[in-house]
Amino acid sequence: MFFLLDFNVIKPDFGLIFWTTIIFGIFWFLMSKYAFRPIANALKDREDEIQSSLDEAKKAREEMANLNAQNEKILAETREERAKILKEAKDTRDSIVNEAKEKAKVEAQKIATTAKLEIENEKKAAIASIKNQVGTMAIGIAEQIIKKDLAGNQEQEGLVSKLVDEIKLN
């Protein structure tokens, strides 16, 4: 039908058909087994690995966020607790201080009262002793004076006592 000047590329030659079949067949087989399939599998594995890594990362991030929220909550709680504890401590301290103050006051008062009493007693004793001494001294003095001037002892002694009582001790 067609006749062309030695356009022989369109005439499929048996030898070339044979060799192409062999060579392409071998190439297909070898490459499938040792290159294309392993490469495709490796690529798929890597793809899966990347996907799972991404998923894991996402999960980790979510967990992290969760953890953070929890931490935040715990921190807030802790802060509250601390504030509460501090407040309590302060209250305790105040009450202790107050109590101590109260106690001290009472004690001080008690001490002061005792001291006063003692002082009073001492004073009384001292006064009494002074009175006695003064009496004695006055008597002595009066004796000295009256030895010469007065004859009656009784009258004189009454006079002196009266005089001594009139002395106000301040």
């Binding site: 039908m1 067609f2 006749f3 062309l4 005439k11 030659d13 048996f14 030898g15 070339l16 060799w19």
Partner: peptide, 24 residues
Amino acid sequence: STADGGIFGGGITSYYDFSITKNV
């Protein structure tokens, strides 16, 4: 010999060439 069945001016001739040609 070529496998075009005579359509393109080839066909079965007296011999077959299974050589390692330039294309091979």
